[in-house]
Amino acid sequence: MSTFDFLKVRRLYIDYDNLDQELLNEVIREEPSFQWCISCGCCTATCSAGNHTTFNIRRISLILRRGEIEGLEEELKKCMLCGKCTLVCPRDIQLRNVVMNIKKIVLKKKTA
């Protein structure tokens, strides 16, 4: 299934020694709450996009943390920016703002 592409294993190991943290750091600067996710999965369970596609907002956050940002932009197009994830998050993480910031930063990089 092509929709699984984003979640496909690219490397056998997560390469912590060569993490691409640039995007992650910028996102955290813009939206510090992104740092304190506990991966409870509430956002994914309630996500409007996640209920119709294989989109998984929690995993996207995690994958960004591991520096695996290939295909991220394409995947984020599925998000409808409805904000339900933010509503249910027990850690009060502004996830919708995280998504918007990733998009913004990626776009800025492309046009730079």
Binding site: C40, G41, C42, T46, V88
Partner: peptide
Amino acid sequence: RGRLSETSEMIDKRLIIKAEDT
């Protein structure tokens, strides 16, 4: 491993729960 996000009810009064199997 996953936190409940919401509960709903069926006609037969059984419950449906939603979470992510993280």
